[in-house]
């Protein structure tokens, strides 16, 4: 029996994604070893400290204390792989045209709100999308920009004299260090939501990041059968981008 499959992730994208996973892990871990040596950041409301980065127990539990030299060594070795993988990813999305799936468009923000309401159970339907919905586009495009930000602020604090112009551009040495740290917190938050959404989206979605394709099942209410007939839009002026098309592509939660 034949099944219809949807070719979702090209091989290159899958490589970039999975190479980034351990490399970013090493960068965050070694970054924490470095941050321990001078850890002034906190979120305060007036005099009240909401979050302190980080409490002593955090360093202790993860064995992050007194390992600055080790942290710097790992960080300044794996930064090259992080940079190279990022450059190849951005270059590939440009050349292959994958960027068309990733760059948010005019409707993405409205769509993202719609998707979020759907994910929260406040709306029954979600807007149609081809590869990624509006929320996903915004999330994945932002994470790419964050990567660029990490590299730029990273170099700004790595060589603040030789790249003095870059350090100045990033708001100075202290500001660049703060941004570099904040972006890392951003990755961790992204990771938590990402994992949650991948679990919600289910096996078919997850395995497509390994195999590259998704099997389109028939009679699956969550995944309407793809038809070859694309109905012409009605004579109305309203392009109704938020209205699901009858042949809408597979449904899945955002950010997966």
């Amino acid at each position: 029996m034949k099944r219809r499959i949807l070719h979702k992730h090209p091989l290159a994208i899958r490589w970039f994604h999975w190479v980034n996973f351990p490399v970013l892990g090493i960068m965050i871990w070694s970054g924490l070893l470095i941050y321990w040596a001078y850890d002034p950041y906190k979120i305060q409301l007036g005099d009240w400290t909401l979050v302190s980065f980080f409490p002593d127990g955090f360093y202790k539990a993860l064995k992050l204390s007194r390992r600055l030299a080790e942290g710097m060594a790992w960080h300044f070795v794996f930064m090259w792989i992080f940079l190279l993988n990022g450059l190849l990813y951005v270059g590939y999305t440009f050349i292959s045209g994958e960027w068309r799936h990733l760059v948010p468009g005019r409707n993405s923000f409205r769509e993202a709100i719609h998707v979020t309401l759907y994910d929260l159970g406040l709306r029954k339907d979600q807007p149609p999308f081809i590869k990624y919905n509006g929320a996903q586009k915004i999330a994945y495009f932002s994470i790419m920009l964050m990567g660029v930000g990490s590299v730029l602020t990273g170099y700004a604090i790595y060589k603040p004299t030789q790249f003095y112009w870059l350090t100045a551009l990033m708001g100075g040495y202290k500001t660049a260090r703060l941004i570099h740290f904040a972006l890392t917190i951003g990755y961790v938050l992204f990771f938590v939501i990402h994992i949650g959404q991948v679990i919600r989206a289910g096996w078919q979605n997850f395995q497509s990041m390994v195999t590259g394709f998704e099997v389109v099942k028939s009679n699956d209410p969550e995944r309407p059968v793809m038809t070859d007939v694309t109905p012409e839009p009605g004579p109305t002026d309203d392009p109704a981008p938020t209205e699901p098309r009858p042949d809408s592509t597979p449904l899945q939660p955002a950010l997966s």
Partner: peptide
């Protein structure tokens, strides 16, 4: 379509 985003390629394959 509202965007110039291309459709994902599809194929029919035996299980």
């Amino acid at each position: 379509k509202a965007t110039n985003e291309p459709d994902l390629p599809e194929s029919d394959l035996p299980e």
